[in-house]
Design a protein around this nucleic acid. Sequence first.
DNA 1: CGCCCTCGAGTTCC
DNA 2: CTCGAGGGCG
Length: 675
Amino acid sequence: MPAPKKAAEEIQALREQINRHNYLYYVLDAPEIGDAEYDRLFQRLVELEGKYPELVTPDSPTQRVGAAPLEAFGTVRHMFPMLSLNNAFEVAELQEFDRRVKTFADLPPGEVITYVAELKIDGLATCLRYEDGLLVSAATRGDGAVGEDVTQNVRTIKTIPLRWLSGSALPGTVEVRGEVHLQRSEFERINKEQEAKGEATFANPRNAAAGSVRQLDSRITAKRRLNFFAYEVRAAEPRFPTHSQGLQRLREAGFPVNPHSKTIEGIDEVAAYCLDWQQRQGELDYNVDGVVVKVDEIAIQNRAGWVSRSPRWAIAYKFPAEEALTVVRDILVSVGRTGVLTPVAIMEPVFVDGSTVQRATLHNEDELRRKDVRVGDTVVIRKAGDVIPEVVRVLPEKRTGKEKKFAFPNKCPACGGPAVRPEGEVAYRCLNPACPAQVRGNLEHWGSRGALDIVGLGEQTVEALVSNGLVKDVADLYTLTKEQVKGLERFADKSADNLVRAIEGSRSPTLARFIYGLGIRHVGDHVAEVLAEHLGTVEKFLEASAADLSQVSEVGPVIAASVEEYVRNPGSRALVAKLLSVGVRPQPVRKAEVTEGPFVGKTVVFTGGLSSLTRQEAERLVKNQGGRISSSVSKETDYVVAGDKPGSKHEKALKLGVRVLSEEEFLRMGRTAEH
DNA sequence: CGCCCTCGAGTTCC
DNA sequence: CTCGAGGGCG
C-alpha cells in the first residue's frame, strides 16, 4: 500500500522542524523549544517512518544514530588535495609571511592585505562531500590526497547538516572542510564513562575525537557528542571571490563556523589577534593550538601561489607548546645505517601533550654544545610538531655541580672503530663498513617500505638474523630457508613461513627500488627514481659515470660522484653481483616508445613559474612523450614554455624566433598527445 | 653567489 | 618533524 500523501507531507514538515531546532540548539546554542517538545517531534517522525519505511531518506534526522559496525574503512579520494600549512611561532614570522605574499602576488610593499584569522582547532581535519546539497561522504585527511571513509561516523555528528539548508545549496559536487573535535567538558564525561567501564581513558580531547571518528561501530560514535567547525568550501568552479564570503555561505547553509573567525586588515592587526587569543585560549571549551591566517581574496591567493604542497597565502601561527620538566639520566649515542653518530638524551619518563616521553634526539655535537646538555641536568622538553620530543633548554639554576659534561666519542659505540667528523660537516661518522650497526641498518633499509618492502623484516627480525649469523648482507636474505628461520626465538612455523614468502615476493623489484635499497649516499627514493629513469637497467647502472649522471636534471656533482664511487667500489660491485646471482632481478625501466606527438625529437625549455603542475611534472610530461629538456635557449630549441614572470629565456626565444608556448597551450599539446 | 625549494637521514611513541 | 645539504635559477 503506497503511503498516503498526507503522511509524506507530515514527515517532510517534521524533518524541517527538527533540522531547524537541531541547528538552533547545537549550532547557535539558542533553543526555542524544550527537550520534551523536541523529543515529541522526533518520536512522531520515528513513528511515521516506521509505518512507511519507503519514505525514509538518508538525510532524515533519524539517520544519525549510527549503523552496524564496519569490517574496515574504505578510502575516498579528495577532489582537491588537503594541503598542509607552514608554521609561524613569532610575530616576526607573520610579518615575513606578509612580505612574501606581496612579493609573489606582485603587490607594493605598502599594500594593506585583508586577511581572515581563524582559531586553529585541535581536532581532526575532515572533508565532507555534498552532491546537490546532500551529504554523500566524509573522509579523514589521510595523506592529503586519499583519506579514510568515515561517513557512517560523521553522520552521527548533530551539527553537521545532512543536507544544506533549503535555498542555500551549491549545485553539483562541493567539498566542505572542517575540524571534528570534542569539547573539553564532553571529553571529561567520556573519560569518566570509560573509567567506570574499566576501559582505557583518552590522553586528550584530540585523541578522544580521533578515536571516536575511527570507530568501526558508529553506534559508539553516536554516543560521543562530537562537534564540528567548517573552515573551507570548495567546488570545481570557485564560487566566491573571497574566503570570507565562502564562510558566510557556510553559515547560511547551516554549518557551524567558528564564531571567532574574523576578517582583518593588515598583518599587524592579525598579530594582535593571535597574541590576544594566545592569552585567552583558556576561555574556550575546546582546545586550540594556534591561529590560521589566510589571504581573503582568492585572486591574490592564486597570484601568491603554492610551494610544493603548502599555499604561500596561508600560515598557521602556533601557540607555544606545552612544556614539561625532567632530568637527563644519560646520553647515549646511536649509530645509523650510514654510520652517523647521533646523541640521544635518556630522561626520567614524563607526560607531555598526550604521551609519556623518555628519549629525545640531541641531533649532533654542535647542537649538544649549543644547548650544553649534561647528564644530571634538569631540562625543559616539549613536542616539536605533534609527536617528536625535543629538548628546549637546560635550567642551569637547577645544577648541583654533580652534572657530567658529555664528551663526544671519537670511537663508534657499536664496533669500537674510529669515528671522524669531516671538516665542514656536523656529523661524526663510523668508517667501518662492516660495523654491525650499519649492517643491521642496511638490512632494515633494504626491507623498508620505499625499498624492497619486505613485510616482517623489522628491527627485531634483523637483529635475530644477524646475531645468529644467518645473514651478513642483503643478498643472504634470498638463500634463507624456512627451517633456518624456525630455529630463531619468537619464530614459529607460521611466522617463519611468512618471512620467507615475503622475501621471495621481493625478487623482482623495480630498478628504482633496487637502487634505493642499496643505500647509496645522497640517493633517497626520489633520486633513485630519477637515476633509474635515466639508466634503465642494472647493467647500465653498474657502468654509471659521474660525467654522464651530472647531465641529468636534479643530479648535481655531489650525487653524481657518490653514485660513481659506489659502482666503482669493489665491495659494492660484489654485493650487486651477489644479489643478481641469488636471483634478484631488478626490472628494466620500460620506456614506451613514443613515435608520434608534438614533443617527439623536440627540445623544450621552461621559464617562469607554472601554476597547475610543478616544473618537474612538466619535464616528465615532455620526456614521456619523446622530448628533451634543456635549461638554456638556443637555435636548437623547439619550444619555450613561458610561465608566470618569465625571465631572460623568454626574451632570447623571441629574439631567436623560437616558438613560445603559454602554460595553457603547453598543457593542451601534452594532453592531446596522451590520448 | 645568494635565494628558494626539495630531498635525505635521523628521530619518538603507540 | 627537523636539520643540513644539494640542485636549479636568476
